[in-house]
Design a protein around this nucleic acid. Structure first.
Length: 187
DNA sequence: AAACGGATTGGCT
DNA sequence: GCCAATCCGTTTC
């Protein structure tokens, strides 16, 4: 299911919250590969109030509070009782500048998982939502990704995961490629 | 019951 | 580069 993290690059994340529509191209993701992944909250089959969401069906939002300060937004992938998720670590804004400006001082920088949720207005209120809903959803566009290079590397901030810390589960494109793709999208 | 540390960020040195 | 902010699951006493 790791490939699904790569697949989410170039798709568009939307929110319709606080009366404003924001759309942003997904430019950076990380895979969290379920019960066998030491970096995953559900490693070893852990089930808590927080991680229970990851055991839902694919296409559900998994949002939790990190460091007591930041909300992190994930897409649950795979099936029920198979707790795998993809963290959205970075986006490039397409529309909704005004709404993002109200939420963030540095509105034009949404690279970083906490910045993504702050800019798009996502919080734990939106945990366990179906991502085909009308508050948060993802769209796919007929983009030719063959000319952009998708980078691969180890995940950020998971040093505690021992050998799994080095797995190549992070995917990203650079800003230049993101802008090229955005130019080709007609929302 | 209390301590510890984390899928982070922004501000200051 | 360092550090504080601050909630919650896990570990340890």
């Amino acid at each position: 299911m790791v490939f699904l993290a790569r697949d989410l690059i170039g798709k568009v994340l939307h929110t319709q919250l606080d009366g404003a529509h924001v759309a942003a191209l997904i430019t950076e993701t990380e895979a969290y590969n379920g019960v066998v992944d030491k970096a995953c909250h559900a490693y070893g089959g852990r089930r808590t109030k927080r991680t229970e969401t990851m055991y839902s069906n694919g296409g559900t939002s998994y949002i939790y509070l990190c460091y007591g300060i930041h909300f992190l937004f994930n897409v649950v992938v795979s099936g029920k009782d198979d707790p795998k998720a993809v963290l959205i670590r970075g986006v490039e804004l397409i529309t909704g500048d005004d709404a993002v400006r109200k939420r963030r001082k540095r509105w034009n920088d949404l690279i970083g998982p906490g910045k993504v949720t702050q800019g798009l207005g996502i919080s734990t209120k939106h945990d366990l939502k179906d991502l085909t809903g009308d508050e948060i959803w993802v769209t796919q566009h007929a983009l030719d990704l063959s000319k952009v290079s998708i980078n691969v590397g180890p995940r950020i901030g998971v040093d505690y995961a021992e050998e799994d810390a080095l797995l190549p589960y992070r995917f990203w494109i650079d800003k230049q490629d993101a802008c090229i793709l955005i130019d080709r999208i007609a929302l």
